[in-house]
Structures are given as structure tokens and as C-alpha cells.
Design a protein around this nucleic acid. Structure first.
Length: 263
DNA sequence: ATGACAGTCTGCGACTGA
């Protein structure tokens, strides 16, 4: 089962890229972030023509996450538990795969958190704590699961082109990294890092100042695997070439391949 | 260099993102 994650920065603008990626990569499940539209406005017909269906939670103009899959999603959950009156569309989770070998997959869009001296940072940290709590609950089920998405977290300095310049940024702050590390300490695996140890491999490059051409990037898109999923991990990677397409998203897809039947 | 980003709608400027 191939699972990919991609912050598309508007699914309407990026629809041609999304279709090309689905045709090229043929993931069983694709987790999308920043669809930037209401769920009803997601371009489902074009996706269906390629044999994929969509589950989405969206809002006007900002945020929004989706699960694009070849087989129907089951037991869909929108939003993290205990989110109170949080209206921001940042989490969707569902089950995929054959009965008896099902995989729980979440598409997450973790808050950016800048500037750090505002309630945006407080919101980010609280969101991360809810995610850690939810991961604990999922772990008790002892099933393969994947929390995939735009974490807005650089786990370590080696994930940043200029760690000094980024020191103090919400993506690199110690409070942010410690909450990301809490996921690792629970037993989750950063799938990319299991296969690739070399530093300075990125998933995001700013649109400004020729950042991609200079490889001034950061690694903030991650697939976090439960022990039962990590045991079946066959491959993981970053589809860096997508950043070179015409009018690209500022993020590129990341993916894992699990030794589990996709259907 | 008078510059050098790209989405969204409160729309031709402000807001947000990373």
C-alpha cells in the first residue's frame, strides 16, 4: 500500500498537478493539506475519472484536508478529539485496506504557529498536545496507522538549510520540537528518516528569492508510523522533482510504501 | 535594480502562510 502526503496550496489551482501526480505515482491513499475550499467545492469529478474518491473537511479560503483513495474510506473522523469550538479544518482520519489488514490513515495540517509571541503559537502547541493524546489512544488499538501531513515542524537543525536564521521560528522552537519528539517517544517512526539518514533533505521551499534553485528548504512534511505500520515499511521518499513543475505548490509530496494489500 | 512569492476574498489592497 502506497501512502502519500502533499500540501497542495489550493486544490483548485493545483488540480492539473494533482491529476498528474495521481497518474504518475498511483498512490493507494493520498493525504492532502491546504485544499483551501469547502468540502463541497472539491473537484471530485476530475479525481473520479482517474479512479479515485475523496473525503474532505474544508473551510472557505484557508486550511482544509482531504483523503484521496482508490478504495472507499471507512469509519471517517473529521477533526481531532477534544477540539472544542475549533473551527479550523486540519484533521481527517479513516480506515483503508482489506478487512482484517486495515490501516488507519490521517491527513493532518498542523498550525504554523508564527509569530511565537502570539496566541497562534499557543494554539499550535495545544494542537500538538491534542495530537499526542490522540496518538496514544490509537496506539492502544495495536493496529497499523499513519499520521501523514504538513506538521510545520523541523524535527532537527539538519532539517533546515539555515538553522541559525530559523532559530526562534515556530517551526524550530524547542517547545515545538519537544512535542514532536513526544510522538517519537510514544513509539512512532518518522518514516523518511528510517530510510534516509543524510541531512538537508527538504519538502518545502519558499516561493521567494529563488529558494528552490538555491536549495534553501526545510523538511516539515512527515509520515509518522505506528509500530505495526513501521514493521511493514518497504520504502519512503520525497518527490522533489514536483517542485520543478510549472506553477508548483511550495511543498512536494512525501510517501511511504507498506507491505500491506491496498485493497 | 525603481526588484526579485502566491494563495484567498473582506477584492485592485489586506490577510495568511512558512
Amino acid at each position: 500500500m502506497k501512502i502519500a502526503s502533499w500540501n497542495v496550496n489550493s486544490v483548485k489551482v493545483r488540480l492539473p498537478h494533482l491529476l498528474a501526480f495521481l497518474e504518475d505515482a498511483r498512490p493507494d491513499v493520498l493525504c492532502l493539506q491546504e485544499i483551501k475550499c469547502l468540502a463541497d467545492d472539491f473537484p471530485r469529478l476530475e479525481i473520479a475519472a482517474l479512479g479515485y474518491q475523496v473525503e474532505a473537511v474544508g473551510q472557505r479560503a484557508y486550511n482544509g484536508v482531504a483523503l484521496v483513495s482508490r478504495e472507499p474510506a471507512r469509519s471517517i473522523v473529521c477533526g481531532l478529539p477534544d477540539s472544542g469550538d475549533d473551527e479550523q479544518a486540519r484533521y481527517i482520519e479513516a480506515s483503508f485496506g482489506a478487512a482484517g489488514s486495515e490501516v488507519r490513515i490521517a491527513s493532518i495540517y498542523l498550525p504554523n504557529g508564527n509569530p511565537v509571541d502570539t496566541d497562534k503559537f499557543t494554539y499550535k502547541l495545544a494542537w500538538m498536545e491534542r495530537l499526542v493524546g490522540h496518538a496514544q489512544g490509537l496506539l492502544r488499538r495495536e493496529i497499523p496507522f499513519v499520521l501523514a501531513g504538513d506538521y510545520n515542524v523541523c524535527p532537527a537543525d539538519e532539517d533546515v538549510y539555515d538553522p541559525v536564521a530559523w532559530q526562534g521560528d515556530a517551526l524550530c522552537r524547542i517547545e515545538t520540537r519537544s512535542r514532536f519528539r513526544a510522538l517519537l517517544n510514544l513509539g512512532l517512526t518518522d518514516a523518511y528518516r528510517l530510510f534516509h539518514r543524510e541531512p538537508h533533505r527538504y519538502t518545502f521551499w519558499d516561493y521567494q528569492a529563488g529558494a528552490f534553485q538555491k536549495n534553501d528548504g526545510i523538511r516539515i512534511d512527515h509520515l509518522m508510523l505506528s509500530p505495526q505500520a513501521a514493521d511493514r515499511l518497504a520504502d519512503a521518499g520525497i518527490d522533489r522533482h514536483v517542485r520543478g513543475w510549472d506553477k508548483p505548490s511550495d511543498h512536494v509530496p512525501v510517501y511511504v510504501d507498506l507491505d500491506i494489500e491496498g485493497r
